[in-house]
Design a protein around this nucleic acid. Structure first.
Lengths: 188, 188
DNA sequence: TCAAATAACATACAAATTGTATGATAAATA
DNA sequence: TATTTATCATACAATTTGTATGTTATTTGA
């Protein structure tokens, strides 16, 4: 068993994460200085350097945490066999997750760090479902390479979800799922 | 008629663009310094500042140029009425364009500036085809909001194209178009 | 509860990079 | 060819980063 992380480290990282997101909602990541983060977080700059080399490492660490939290949400929640049902269920959980962490996701998205999100989602889908999909009859019959399929739907879905997220007033979750339902064919 | 731009400016911007892409293929955009660009481009740093405030402005300017070049490629080349045929034709030109500028696109993509590409493509699709699609019967009947449709397909397609671009060995252009053909339904 | 370990802090400073200013030189325009 | 102006060379101030050191405060684990 791993030694438990020192409480102080947990606290420091949490406040750094929170502050990073807060600032990313105010200005572009590119323009955020390490000293901005530390000032806002009330963390000594030397403490920052004790944990991270630069702000990119901080962002990466945060994204990794976020990914784990999403995987945890998906775990034990998605069990359907039928491909479409499976995707819809997966998506429903994904939307809930994104909705709950709305501030975080929209901050990343608005910073044009879209690439992160797509990589992220693809990684999650691959970990969560690639094994499952591999043996799925629908998929096998489709004659489409699995990697192409995953990239297509991951790219499309994350894009729809993100745009929905940044202008949520327009449709509610059920409507959104309804649209996606129409976008994904019964047999892939 | 607009006054023609001074030749020196054209040259300077071109070498800055070329150098930027060259460097983005070597390291992440985040790590590229203005002085790196100028050294490599053999441009005086003060000349850089005469044109741009920072490297982000340079990238934006470049992306804008790229967009114009793609729009030009599409112009006068896409005329079909049927939605699917239209999309396939549009995509075929897009792939040629991307293939031709392979170095540029993969550099942007590899720098996790995916967001740029999606925005970019959506913008192009909107400019090129939104009017056309708006009056299209297939679309009108689909009961899906046009913005959702565009975001879904734009996100999915750019993602597939980019992944194809970065590992071109795997499939050739015809195979890729074949896959996409299967991903896009006859009636949307 | 207390001693040991260590994370966070305060501070200082060197190094890197940016941003600006100025006059001289070279190239493009008309 | 004369005029305009973009580029260059250089210098320098300002910002930001990165590192180092000793002190203080908090957490851990016995």
């Amino acid at each position: 068993m791993n030694k438990k992380t020192d409480l102080r480290i947990v606290k420091t990282k949490k406040v750094l994460f929170d502050t990073l997101i807060k600032l990313m909602r105010q200005k572009n990541f590119d323009k955020i200085k390490i000293s901005d983060i530390c000032d806002e977080a009330l963390i000594n700059r030397s403490t920052f350097y004790a944990h991270y080399e630069d702000k990119y490492e901080l962002l990466d660490d945060f994204i990794e945490d976020l990914k784990m939290s999403l995987l945890k949400d998906l775990e034990d929640n998605v069990h359907n066999i039928n491909t479409k049902e499976y995707i819809m269920k997966l998506l429903s959980i994904l939307i809930d997750h994104i909705d709950e962490k709305r501030d975080i996701y929209s901050a990343i998205f608005l910073n044009n760090r879209n690439g992160f999100l797509v990589d992220f989602l693809i990684d999650v889908i691959e970990r969560e479902s690639l094994e499952r999909l591999k043996n799925n009859n629908d998929i096998v019959k489709s004659e489409l390479p699995l990697d192409i399929l995953v990239k297509f739907y991951a790219g499309g879905l994350i894009n729809v979800c993100m745009s929905w997220l940044t202008r949520k007033e327009k449709y509610n979750k059920e409507e959104l799922l309804g649209f996606i339902d129409k976008l994904i064919p019964e047999k892939i």
